[in-house]
């Protein structure tokens, strides 16, 4: 099937498709999913150091305690929360008979919930990261 695709004379596409909320939430879902997957691989590897020696684990964790990684962690939590809530939205679209009708409203709910949880988290997390 892939070989056929390469022989097809699809002319280079023009502008970006101007999809709406549904399309962009799907794009964001993909990107955050990929990001979380890559993080997960690293996270399991570094956590595995607890099996090597307490010092080895503590040493690696110590290198993470700087503002750059701290901000990265905040971004990661943001990605996880979006992926989680948008995932629930996708499930509602798939399993709730009224889901397709209210998909846009549900995306606003996802956004609201995300902000609602991110604000206290950022206050707590960033004061840890920057407050020492």
């Amino acid at each position: 099937m892939a070989t056929e695709t390469s022989t097809r004379s699809v002319v280079p596409q023009g502008t970006l498709y101007r999809g709406r909320e549904g399309m962009w939430s799907w794009v964001a879902h993909r990107i955050t999913g990929l990001l979380i997957f890559v993080f997960l691989l690293v996270h399991v590897l570094d956590t595995s150091l607890v099996r090597v020696a307490p010092e080895a684990y503590n040493a690696v964790i110590e290198t993470y305690k700087n503002p750059v990684v701290g901000l990265g962690e905040a971004g990661l939590v943001g990605a996880v929360l979006f992926h989680a809530f948008n995932g629930i939205r996708v499930m509602l679209v798939d399993f709730w008979s009224q889901g397709p009708r209210f998909h846009r409203q549900m995306l606003w709910a996802v956004g609201a919930l995300w902000v609602l949880l991110m604000v206290p988290f950022l206050v707590r997390h960033l004061s840890n990261v920057f407050g020492g």
Binding site: E21, G22, M23, W26, D94, P100, R101
Partner: peptide, 25 residues
């Protein structure tokens, strides 16, 4: 189908395409 709803918004006949796919699923 990844429920992006582009199809439902593009349909010139206003068919609720994503809903139809949902029913087939």
């Amino acid at each position: 189908c990844r429920t992006t709803f582009n199809c439902s918004e593009a349909c010139p006949r206003g068919i609720q395409v994503t809903k139809a796919i949902h029913e087939v699923k």
